[in-house]
Design a protein around this nucleic acid. Structure first.
Lengths: 217, 217
DNA sequence: GGGAGCATGTAACGGGTTACATGATTGG
DNA sequence: CCAATCATGTAACCCGTTACATGCTCCC
């Protein structure tokens, strides 16, 4: 809570930052002093489950921007006269800006680019067996992500001040469980479709309507 | 299936296209002759449920690129001597390239940028009431998307050659249903947490251990 | 000694967006 | 006739990535 009269920027306008900039500032808002490298690991640890984890180079450039805007400050940690890491810390202005951003009405829309579904969508171009492989791979990948989210959630549990990250990790666990289950369901539907398509033409004459109805049920 | 000896590019290398380029080519692969404007509407109709719908300008530039690579061809539709739309059609080389792309091992990872979860993740910066609003809004938005996917799936049903798009639309329906349900679940967890946090300190002395255990269960 | 991880950056590139401009067509 | 929609494009911009360069430290 900054005292009046400090050197905080008086314009309460939101500085314009890319989403990733807010994410980095958000990571810093949990209080610790962190290096760019730390930030990347923290992002991989918690952010990537629901927000595309930024690359090193972008984290470094966002940090420079944050500092140039006065939203964060850095100092170089020296040990035994050896130039060490550059450690970043959120500033009062940074906290204020983050708060304003969080209070803002605007929520940017969810971005989803699902390459696997695009492949399935163009399934008429593919070997059915290949489609199954891609889907199975995706299923396994989702399950791996779920497990990691679960592990990370347990790591965050009961840490003071980490209630919200924990809440979101719980959401992430479910997200990847759902993703896994939808892949399984789709595999089943693919099987069903293959059976129907391959047999329907050949078997139509050999089957009674009752048998067909049973088959579909 | 192109005959040997045609002017197809003999290098069977995949041309390098951004994912959106493949998506546009994919849209064309369903056979119709389409204008850029049509493409945009088709993308909004079917693609956006699982793949970020590209803007007009990108569709136009991807189309120009596809044509320059020989993957699509265009003609200008004239009516009454009036210059009309430019209509695009996939070429044999385009079909071949798409097929090679679909057969390729590489599946690019799913991109998810969930702004709502980022807000929740930084919940400690927000008014709890505001968080509930954001989540509720997201819940409703997800339900609206689900309904649209359902409607579109019914539109695609039984269209010949649209079995795979229909399959993916079914997946999309579930995706948005799951998204909606997770939002509801999180709202409930937010309530639960609020009740626990606000009452635990004040009520800890007034409660027996049994009551506390019951409350948590 | 050497490899793995730590640590920080630069440069080039490109994918994709917004904003803007322009004009035809259609329907109330 | 006027507004909405159709229709196509250009220009500027920037987010974010990959590739590359550099050097440290720790540990086997």
């Amino acid at each position: 809570m900054p005292r009046p009269g400090t050197d905080l920027p008086s314009d309460d306008q939101l500085p314009s930052l890319p989403p990733t900039g807010w994410a980095v500032l958000g990571l810093l808002s949990f209080g610790e002093e962190l290096s760019g490298y730390d930030l990347k690991r923290w992002a991989d640890w918690s952010l990537r489950f629901f927000y595309w984890a930024p690359s090193f180079s972008q984290i470094y450039s966002e940090l420079r921007r944050l500092e140039s805007l006065g939203l964060a400050s850095s100092r170089i940690e020296t040990r035994d006269d050896v130039r060490g890491k550059r450690m970043y810390r959120i500033s009062d202005a940074g906290r204020a800006a983050l708060g304003a951003w969080a209070a803002d009405d605007h929520v940017d829309p969810v971005v989803l680019k699902h390459g696997v579904m695009m492949r399935l969508w163009l399934g008429h171009l593919s070997d059915p067996e290949r489609l199954r492989e891609v889907l199975t791979e995706h299923r396994d990948q989702s399950e791996r992500m779920r497990v990691r989210a679960e592990a990370d959630r347990e790591g965050a549990r009961a840490e003071p001040g980490w209630a919200f990250p924990e809440l979101v990790l719980r959401w992430s666990e479910r997200y990847y469980a759902d993703e896994r289950d939808r892949a399984d369901l789709m595999l089943a539907e693919l099987d069903e479709a293959a059976r129907t398509w391959s047999t329907s033409a050949a078997a139509a004459e050999r089957r009674t309507p009752e048998e067909l109805r049973q088959h579909r049920a």
